[in-house]
């Protein structure tokens, strides 16, 4: 199970070059998202859609409120 993190840890990881992925639907991502986040909706998360991600670097996923 992935490590759950809070805001302070997120900022630290971003400073270290972590990749940020919003997994909400595209319309919600288009409305507003965290700077530099890319969008891979949960329903589209598969081997192809994750190809842009660098597997050697940290990946932080987020949605609206974790639910």
């Amino acid at each position: 199970m992935a490590t759950g993190i809070g805001l302070a840890e997120l900022k630290r990881l971003l400073d270290e070059g972590a990749q940020l992925v919003e997994v909400l639907p595209a319309a919600e991502y288009a409305e507003e998202h965290l700077p530099r986040a890319i969008n891979i909706p949960l329903k589209e998360l598969d081997a192809t859609s994750v190809e842009p991600l660098d597997r050697s670097r940290a990946v932080v996923v987020y949605c609206s409120d974790g639910l």
Binding site: A2, L7, S56, A58, V59, Y62, G66
Partner: peptide
């Protein structure tokens, strides 16, 4: 290397 920002966009 996989993390979940559990409080999400609402918290940010």
């Amino acid at each position: 290397l996989v993390f979940d920002y559990t409080l999400g966009k609402a918290d940010w």
